[in-house]
Design a protein around this nucleic acid. Structure first.
Lengths: 210, 210
DNA sequence: GCAATTAGTGAATCATTATTCATTCTTTGT
DNA sequence: ACAAAGAATGAATAATGATTCACTAATTGC
């Protein structure tokens, strides 16, 4: 008898899988999922196309994983912002700002995650993650209601409104058409945009003029 | 010399084009753009696939036209609601309600217009129409600021938030996954949902508790 | 009825990519 | 070094549908 999978091999395979994931991520970051063909990913990763399929069931599976990882990172950041000490409204504000600013800093990836047309399996992930964001916000809203800095309301619905308002506000600035006219000035002050979104959202929640 | 295009022929062609458009609409209303293959549309319309191409440059062109017509209808309804007499906030409320209720009454088409992944040319139309909605709202917000029932703010940004909040709130209830579990009770009271959205939006605009 | 011209047809073609799989290369334990 | 097993390869295949185009059918004015 002979070949038995060894630790070294396990690691090598894991590394290959990792590399494929990274290269896919890179492709998406450059031009969206549309831009990430299997052949291109394989080329970048320095493997044959067939090899992709030893690590992933299908393109959709690969994409779904990339989407999941990328979005999870963002969700974590929002969760982090919501976990800081302070009253609920302030924490929500921080979280919304975090969301918007991170998106504007990595616009192509953000656009892919938020608005690029994607395959069904990936779209499923997107819906799931929109729910994840909403759930985080929902929890914070509940806490705000508890603390009485937010009036009683359907926290779930309101959280969905938050997600929608912020996502829609970003679609314009993030969309590739917009990106083309790359504002030479790359400091590109987005503060007013972000501030307006936040004001609308917090007012929507609290009904208190800011 | 001989054949010269006559009025009768012009009309017949127009009728065929119209029929193709209607059948495409029907396909989309049944299962989204995904469901509307050219062969299926041709079959429904009782013409050969090639005939489609005597009336439309390409599938994307056909789809874009269908999208445009369908959305224009909705935009008109919103415009109508905004054109009634009354203070700006009341008119905005009417318009938002109109938007949401019409969507919930024709969920498959609404989902296609709002959230179905579509080809680039159609996506362009979608972006354009989201802007059309936003522009209508923006104008009403401006009027509200004039009337002093809405505090001064970036009307364009706020209108985008409105569009986002309402669209996102509808995506869940409209999504095909959701539709599967067709609530037997087809009166399916959506009033609480719609009311919550509206409250959030109007509060977001006015900062006044409702 | 005829010639000119356009409309309509739909099977065949094309285009695009994901996916497969027969083959080659590596690793492993003895 | 060898045999067994798995990993990697990438050219060939498959699948999906949009689009074409050589051909037929209709329409028109004479």
């Amino acid at each position: 008898m002979a070949y038995r999978e060894t630790e070294k091999m396990r690691q090598r395979k894991a590394a290959a899988r990792q590399r494929i994931a990274e290269c896919t991520y890179q492709c998406v970051a450059e031009g969206g999922f549309r831009n990430a063909r299997i052949t291109r990913v394989a080329q970048l990763a320095g493997v044959a196309t067939g090899t992709i399929y030893r690590h992933y069931e299908s393109k959709e599976d690969l994409f779904a994983e990339i989407f999941r990882k990328a979005t999870q990172r963002e969700v974590d950041k929002v969760a982090e912002a919501l976990a800081t000490p302070g009253i609920a409204t302030a924490r929500l504000e921080k979280a919304l700002r975090q969301f918007a600013e991170r998106a504007l800093k990595a616009p192509v990836m953000a656009w892919s995650l938020i608005a690029e047309p994607v395959d069904p399996k990936v779209e499923e992930e997107r819906l799931a993650y929109r729910k994840a964001y909403a759930s985080l916000f929902e929890q914070a809203i509940r806490e705000g209601i508890e603390e009485e800095c937010i009036p009683d309301q359907d926290a779930r619905q309101s959280s969905t409104c938050l997600v929608g308002a912020i996502a829609e506000s970003l679609v314009g600035p993030l969309s590739p058409a917009q990106a083309e006219q790359a504002t030479a000035d790359d400091t590109d002050n987005n503060d007013p945009l972000v501030n307006t979104i936040i004001r609308f959202c917090i007012q929507g929640l609290t009904g208190a003029r800011r």
